[in-house]
Design a protein around this nucleic acid. Structure first.
Length: 571
RNA sequence: CGGGGAGUGGCGCAGUGGAAGCGCGCCUGCUUUGGGAGCAGGAGGUCGCGGGUUCGACCCCCGCCUCCCCGACCA
């Protein structure tokens, strides 16, 4: 492609609203253009990168036995009523009425339509496995979009769905997809880690997300630092082994004055002990019932674990009013002596003796509170959030490292949630009607591109991996328009590169050399070849990799340039 | 939805109750060509929208819209 025939309009400055690196670079390099909050157009350069991503995805999906389809973005609301998600989907469905006043929605995902597609033809266990995928636009009316393409409202996603006759089949489909995902990310040059994830309120048993570790990520991911177990999970899901306090005999419950002490940190400091020697009480409302949640002072509550333990309803912080009317004194709260309270306890407070706890009296706490003797709970379990340094639950020596990650893919075992609701049923070997076992598998293509930029850039611009860069090579001509030898050499090299099947951008614009170099760095093609009076004087063509400094470039003769460039590209 | 910030040429920004400016970009010509060039001449703005105050509003007042950041939320 000749740059003079293409649409490249780079800018020196990014728009005011761009804050993340990927947003700035993708905008400055004219890959994307913002139209509204969380809504973008894709420009020719961005399109090329996305097209390469799509191509890789298609190949891997096809290899995994999935068939490509397209399902509508605009859907009748009635099918969402059938699945039961018309009113429960969060964020809210974007709705509108058509001219006949029918209720329509913009699809945020496609379980409903794929279920309809599946039930059309799946009548026997012999019809499965069936794996379908599409690369399609979604619209989610997020309460807040952010970070350029990292989190948007309208976006393109590859979503795949599997139908199987039983759990074993679902496991096989899920594993096939997980393998395809590993291949996709690796072929995109991205080091994405697969970590366990919570399956969310939609149910299902297993779920995993693929995260690209990057400081700008929204996700917290915990990964075991030991080589032996490979355990990783996102913050919502992460398990860990709690470190017990030194065991001691129960002491006598003793109330003491703690004027002005409102926090665990202050309490621990006053008594000169670790916060692990305290019991912390926090207040949640679940289905409008107020609970006091008691956890050891050095841990935080994991609301997802809490939700799952309590049956799936979303917990929220209780209001001060609710806390008071339940009989608690914030700052000095505990479950001790509040008989009417609903109590949830993390196992960390159950197993450790002689903790400092609130006395439910302003300015007072207890020493030596012990579970079972001084108070008890209605529910006990693991509701603690894992954090950096916690002991790994899967291996003896490992500890968890905390990372920020960008969620670029997510796979779920849905099982029969949708097939029951949407009536995707088949006759099994015994002739009995069974719901199909479904899975769903998503990759955000735009987010993948943005994540790749977040993970691969320097101060001059993007450094996209060759498999997804808009071009593999940029051929810069300097003095093309007034130097016959330069022009002939460059044109000839461009022809050879094209013939060799190397995706080349030939910068034949009438721009100053500095402009072309700056653009090449910003767009970040993996290899740069320069033909100029100087390079010819030095023996031919100057080549360098994007990751090399200009001073590390080298000269090769025009005849060996294609081979040298291929070598630099690496395979 | 709560908190904070911002809307002035394509982009980044300044600005004053009395004739809308600067840098970059853009157009023409000439000169240039190794890190976003030089000279000269040009084009381009409903100062977010609607009301109000005023002889006069980009500026002051009221209402609204939009965008960004933090939080909440995120099958």
């Amino acid at each position: 492609m000749r740059a003079s025939q293409f649409y490249i309009k780079t800018t020196r400055e990014a728009p005011l609203e761009a804050e993340t690196i990927s947003h700035k670079y993708l905008t400055r390099a004219s890959f994307i253009q913002q139209i509204a909050a969380g809504i973008f157009s894709i420009m020719p350069l961005g399109w090329r990168s996305l097209e390469k991503i799509r191509h890789i995805i298609r190949e891997e999906m096809n290899n995994a036995g999935a068939l490509e389809v397209t399902m509508p973005v605009v859907q009748p609301r009635s099918i969402w009523e059938e699945s039961g998600r018309a009113d429960t989907y969060v964020p809210p469905l974007a709705r509108f009425s058509d001219r006949r006043d029918r209720d329509m929605v913009l699809a945020p995902t496609h379980e409903e339509t794929v279920s309809i597609m599946g039930r059309y033809g799946i009548t026997s266990y012999r019809d499965m496995p069936l794996r379908l995928y599409q690369i399609q636009t979604k619209f989610r009316d997020e309460t807040r979009s952010r970070g350029g393409l990292l989190r948007v409202r309208e976006f393109e996603m590859k979503d795949a769905y599997s139908f199987d006759a039983d759990d074993a089949g679902l496991d096989a489909s899920y594993d096939a997809m997980a393998e395809a995902y590993h291949n996709i990310f690796s072929r995109c040059g991205l080091d994405a880690v697969m970590v366990e994830a919570d399956s969310g309120s939609i149910g299902g048993k297993d779920s995993a997300e693929f995260a690209l570790l990057a400081a700008s990520g929204e996700d917290s991911v915990l990964i075991c630092d030991s080589d032996c177990c490979g355990y990783g999970a996102n913050l919502e899901k992460a398990e860990f082994v709690k470190s017990p306090n030194a065991s001691e005999d129960p002491g006598e419950l003793e109330k003491f004055a703690t004027p002005g002490v409102k926090t665990i940190a202050a309490l621990a400091e006053l008594e000169d002990v670790s916060s692990a020697k305290t019991a912390k009480a926090v207040f949640y409302a679940i289905d409008d019932q107020v609970y006091v949640v008691v956890i050891r002072g050095d841990y935080e509550v994991n609301e997802t674990k809490l939700r799952n333990m309590m049956g799936g309803s979303e917990p929220r912080f209780a209001t001060p009013k609710e806390v008071e009317s339940a009989g608690f004194v914030p700052g000095s709260a505990s479950a001790i002596g509040v008989d009417s309270a609903y109590v949830i306890a993390d196992d960390s407070v159950v197993e450790n003796a002689n903790l400092l706890a609130g006395a439910n009296e302003d300015g007072h706490h207890y020493r030596n509170s012990n579970y079972g003797r001084d108070w008890s709970a209605d529910h006990v379990g693991d509701i603690a959030a894992a954090a950096e340094g916690c002991k790994c639950a899967r291996c003896p020596d490992g500890h968890l490292e905390s990372h920020r990650g960008i969620e670029v893919g997510h796979i779920f075992k849905l099982r029969t949630v949708y097939s029951e609701a949407m009536n995707v049923k088949f006759n099994d070997v015994n002739g009995r009607l069974q719901p199909s076992y479904m899975g769903c598998y998503g990759i955000g293509t735009g987010r993948l591109l943005a994540a790749a930029v977040e993970a691969n850039h320097d101060e001059r611009g993007m450094m996209l991996p060759k498999s997804i860069a808009p071009f593999e090579v940029v051929l810069v001509g300097v003095n093309l328009h007034n130097n016959e030898e330069v022009r002939e050499t460059a044109e000839s090299l461009y022809g050879q590169l094209t013939k060799a099947g190397i995706d080349t951008l030939f910068d034949d614009r009438e721009e100053a050399a500095g402009v072309k170099f700056a653009d090449a760095d910003l767009i970040g093609m993996p290899v740069r070849a320069v033909v100029s009076p100087r390079s010819i004087q030095n023996g031919g063509v100057e080549i360098k990799h994007r990751e090399q400094a200009p001073s590390d470039s080298r000269i090769c003769s025009a005849s060996e340039a294609v081979d040298a460039i291929e070598a630099l590209l690496g395979g």
